[in-house]
């Protein structure tokens, strides 16, 4: 993937914007019904403000992170903003991306979300999609798989992780006010994380 990072971000943004109502509906069940609206507003700003032709992938991702910090509004702003800014650290100055680079960027992004949210796996959050996805990606790459193969495995694991969020109670974020009553509902943050990974996979596969 060379210097097409803007196109990939646009692809993620369009997918999030398409899913605005779906994400907001999920959030209405256990949150404050703003996840889809907030994320769509953030990515609309990313599509508008992030430079189209800067070849430095790290710089583009940093700008993406800063834009999300400023425009999302809810907790997903600092969470996704931090994810992109941490990923940017692994890709500073790079104009193309190897499967190892992507793995490092994903690892830093996931760690950044955990640190920002002071959260771990099993609390019904984004991490319940992201951590299994990272593990699956790393396993596939260790077996000699390609970037696209790794992303296929990451997306499958994220999907399972999203399903798993239905069976557990929230202990972090707005949904934790509901406690056990959050069981049975799919986590919106884990869902938007899965949508993000799927958009990256589809972009790479094209």
């Amino acid at each position: 993937m060379c210097a097409r990072v803007y196109d990939c971000l646009k692809c993620i943004g369009e997918r999030i914007i398409e899913n605005r109502e779906f994400l907001t509906d999920l959030d209405r069940e256990i949150g404050d019904a703003d996840h889809g609206v907030n994320m769509a507003r953030g990515y609309a700003a990313v599509i508008e403000k992030v430079p189209r032709d800067n070849p430095d992938i790290g710089a583009v991702l940093k700008k993406t992170g800063m834009t999300l910090l400023s425009t999302v509004g809810g907790a997903s702003g600092p969470l996704y903003g931090t994810a992109y800014m941490e990923a940017a650290k692994a890709l500073a100055g790079k104009e193309s991306l190897t499967k190892e680079d992507f793995g490092k960027a994903l690892e830093l992004a996931v760690a950044g979300v955990g640190k920002r949210g002071k959260s771990v796996r099993g609390e019904k959050t984004m991490l319940d999609a992201l951590i299994p996805a990272l593990d699956a990606y790393n396993r596939k790459i260790a077996e000699g798989g390609s970037l696209a193969d790794g992303l296929d495995c990451a997306c499958a694991a994220a999907k399972e992780g999203v399903e798993h969020t239905k069976s557990i109670a929230a202990t972090k974020g707005r949904a934790s006010y509901l406690g056990e009553r959050s069981i049975g509902h799919q986590d919106p943050g884990a869902t938007s994380a899965m949508i993000t990974l799927e958009a990256i996979r589809d972009f790479i596969r094209e």
Binding site: N38, L69, S70, V72, G73, G74, G77, P78, G81
Partner: peptide, 8 residues
């Protein structure tokens, strides 16, 4: 709008 902005 309602929300928080780390850059601001």
């Amino acid at each position: 709008e309602i929300g928080t902005d780390a850059v601001r």
